[in-house]
Design a protein around this nucleic acid. Sequence first.
DNA 1: TGTTCTATAGAACATTTGTTATAGGAGGCA
DNA 2: TGCCTCCTATAACAAATGTTCTATAGAACA
Lengths: 226, 226
Amino acid sequence: MDALSPKRKRILDFITSFVGKKGYAPSVRDVVKGCGISSSSVAQYHLNVLEGEGYIHRDREIPRSISLSRRRQGVTTVPVLGIIAAGEPIPVPSSDTWVTVCEESLEVPNELVRGKENIYALRVKGNSMVDALIDDGDLVLMQQASNVDNGEMVAIWLKDEQEVTLKKIYRESGRVRLQPANRQMKPMYQRPENIDVQGRVIGVIRKIEAGDQGELSSAGGDIMNE
Amino acid sequence: MDALSPKRKRILDFITSFVGKKGYAPSVRDVVKGCGISSSSVAQYHLNVLEGEGYIHRDREIPRSISLSRRRQGVTTVPVLGIIAAGEPIPVPSSDTWVTVCEESLEVPNELVRGKENIYALRVKGNSMVDALIDDGDLVLMQQASNVDNGEMVAIWLKDEQEVTLKKIYRESGRVRLQPANRQMKPMYQRPENIDVQGRVIGVIRKIEAGDQGELSSAGGDIMNE
DNA sequence: TGTTCTATAGAACATTTGTTATAGGAGGCA
DNA sequence: TGCCTCCTATAACAAATGTTCTATAGAACA
């Protein structure tokens, strides 16, 4: 469905990021520099292809007139920083993590991100999070956050258990109640010293490979706040 | 608080509109043409002032690098097309209404408009709409629409009465129920042939001039959909 | 082998465009 | 009147930039 060569995808991502950072579109030569292309004509070539395929729009002879097509404007590209699994601490983004070009990126509907910043995604490995209604292979949308409100779905590192878990957090007197998203399951109680909030879970994306065609569907009802 | 000369305001509005229409920023010479300025240096002069005052941002030597400051990005400028009063049909925007520079424009928070198109504002004259919780002097945000759903707050022209009214509309078998926003008031029933939906009411803005300073506050709880 | 399509390079040209130097005018103010 | 500030106007320069021409390389294919 995408049919985007890696180079074109990189150009598209670069444009998105450039516009996001600078507030205006890159020139052809900005694309050259930003995407490791050696000639402006090559960039021109790919930009023309991208325009022909409807990913971008340009006005002839007008500098910096690249604009993302509406289809692209409805999505936000977030980096997939790594995996999240029961026994491993989750990757927490550092400032330079964002600068380096990520091997993998993910496009999510704006509604899921809606203005929030410091968003990244993690791929779920294993079935340890079924109690949070999250399946193996799911993508978890995270927001970097250390202070979270009661009732929010957060990623928690349990120090003693050396384990990460996704739960709704409720601070109670002297203890912390961790409530699975699956209401049929019982809450877990932890000492406040034993938990380390790694971030806020703002969404889950599950790509279901069905018989017909792979569809991008978002799941998780009450998982998402806002 | 604004301290914007008419010319600067016009430039700012032009930039907003240009970006909205084209998807990229205007050049200095575009501003010249679009704002009836006779020289690029004049435009340059005003743009520099606007940048100094924080309304816009520019990168030196880079064409079309004008970007609206965050403060400006949070608001949308909508035209105030006229007044709305009990006994007068409301002005319905035609295609060229948008082209002509409106004498008056209004800046509303993006949350009120959020992606919607064909938005305009009307100033309320008189107290005929208190049943819709709308006061004399309020600004009503309208969306041009002929087909509206049940339960939406709409502006209705009553043909027999030669009167405009703001009500929630419910189509029932053989009649139309018009429900005032004020729930303490009784609904009105009309024949379908007698009503003409002029547009959707998407918000109300009431500027309360208090003792301290005029504050822009939006009111109308369940008046706004979304 | 020859052909075709895609992708890459380098270079040059013409336009678009930001910027600046210079000068004139309108209005307030002493 | 003189002075100042804000605004307008013309022209020209230099940089940024879109575009095009030509050439080359690799892969797929008949």
